[in-house]
Simulated scan of single mutants.
Amino acid sequence: MARKNAKRILVVLSEYGYWGEELVGPLHHFDQRGYEVDFATPTGKRAHALPPSMDPGYIDPPLGRSVTSEEVARLTRELDGSDRLDDPLDISAWLPQRPYTSDDDYLRRLEEYHRAVALVEQELDAYDALLIVGGSGPIVDLGNNERLHEIILAFHRAGKPIAAECYGVTPLAFARDWEDRESIIRGKRVTGHCKEYDYKDGTGFLGTDFVMGPPPYPLEYILRDATGPDGRYIGNFGKETSVIVDFPFITGRSTPDSYLTGEKVVEVLEDGLRRFGW
């Protein structure tokens, strides 16, 4: 049960599959604190965990070992089978689509778009932090989702914590004000799925039979470029965990970093943590 005056977290999930521990881990810490948690997906469809993330026998090819414990697999199956993720917020209904420059009456439509975004920004003021959960799904429907970018920008303008894990870090690189087109993580320290951990084959997504080879982009390269000369991508390859706090951003590299990511979100909110891991 949420405590009186509890923090409120907006958690964004892909409709093409999230990695179980990357939701279970942060939720463990949010629930311990009695935080209120609202879930959102790109079109309001219920999110589901990727099957390998519920299987402790699944061997992660880059690591050559299982990355899911029996306990985490159980917790993921219980969450996925519960009604907690039912009826998520529909981001596509919440925020309008930015008009094309070729649309009729473009200027008036753009003004209307900005008015609508400003109203949503007022609604987002009810939240204390944002979390974008990773897995392969975000590659499909979160990375270049302009509506999600507007949500991220709203949290950024408000100076509120923005957390992301694994491929859920991608939208942070692409969230940009249209005036200067500069990534909001420029000059920041972040982590995210490193090149050594990318699949060479077998990247799959829920809701489709399509299975591709490696991911369509190496996230590490995108993050290195987006952070610019004054920032830094920190992969921590060879270390068991990699979580970086460079306020307002809390980024986790991959699955083993999920619980630590949630822990650091809590420390940012409760203790004023502004820097960790670098």
Rank of each mutant, 00 (worst) to 15 (best):
R77N: 12
D180T: 14
I184Y: 05
E165K: 09
I162E: 08
H28I: 12
P52V: 02
G168L: 04
G17N: 03
W178F: 10
I132F: 02
R224W: 03
D90Q: 09
P248K: 06
K7M: 13
E112W: 10
P56D: 06
I91H: 01
I250C: 06
D87Y: 11
E121C: 10
I152Q: 09
L142K: 03
H114Y: 15
G187A: 05
N144C: 12
P171H: 00
E21I: 01
K160F: 11
Y259L: 08
T101W: 14
L107R: 11
E22N: 06
K239Y: 14
R189G: 07
H156F: 13
G192I: 00
R33G: 14
R181T: 04
G135V: 01
A49R: 03
T227F: 01
Q97G: 13
L273W: 05
D104A: 14
L79R: 04
A6G: 13
L23H: 01
W178A: 13
F249Q: 09
G277Q: 04
R65Q: 13
E123G: 11
S69K: 02
D55E: 08
T43E: 13
L79C: 03
D31V: 11
H48T: 05
Q32L: 14
S66L: 02
P229Y: 05
L142S: 03
A49E: 01
Y199W: 09
H149S: 08
Y233G: 00
E270M: 11
D38E: 14
T170C: 11
F210D: 15
E165P: 14
R8F: 02
S53L: 10
G34C: 08
G192V: 08
G277S: 02
L131Q: 05
G137W: 00
D104M: 12
G252W: 04
M1A: 14
E196N: 13
I234D: 11
H193I: 07
D83V: 14
P161F: 00
V169S: 00
G81K: 11
A158Q: 11
F30W: 05
G64N: 05
Y259R: 10
G44T: 06
R3L: 15
G252L: 07
F247V: 03
F237Y: 14
T227A: 12
T68M: 04
E196S: 15
E146N: 12
L63A: 15
T191Y: 00
P61I: 01
P248E: 05
R253M: 03
Y16D: 12
V12Y: 06
G235M: 02
W178Q: 14
